[in-house]
């Protein structure tokens, strides 16, 4: 019999695994008849989904949701910083290409 906290961990693992499987759909939709083609939406989607997973890992597995509000806000800020850094550099690279 799973306790409530164990059920929550299991649910988090299911969601994380399902998001991981969703990458197959991104990969398939970005192909042109089996040939990989450059896709801004696939790249942005892959980064955003990865950051959603990072936040779930932090909140649920790393127990940040039980942590002081400062750590909750700091980790959320970090996810936003990572998003800004990665997407910013990606679009900067596209702009100068």
């Amino acid at each position: 019999m799973l306790s409530a906290s164990n059920k929550r961990l299991f649910a988090a693992w299911i969601v994380l695994s399902a998001i991981t499987a969703a990458y197959l759909w991104i990969d398939h939709s970005a192909d042109d008849h089996g040939t990989p083609v450059a896709s801004t939406s696939a790249t942005v989607g892959a980064i955003v989904l990865a950051l959603v997973k990072v936040r779930i890992i932090m909140r649920e597995f790393m127990e940040v949701r039980h942590a002081p509000r400062l750590l909750c806000r700091l980790t959320d800020l970090w996810v936003v910083l990572m998003a800004a850094g990665m997407l910013g550099m990606y679009f900067a690279g596209k702009a100068v290409a």
């Binding site: 450059a38 990665m86 690279g93």
Partner: peptide
Amino acid sequence: LVESLIFTSYFGVYLFYRAQHEAAFLQEQA
């Protein structure tokens, strides 16, 4: 938090170069 920032910096460099050489990256990524 420090490790995340260091890795994010490298991810940024990777994405910057990737966006400039998409065809070459795709060919090897395949």
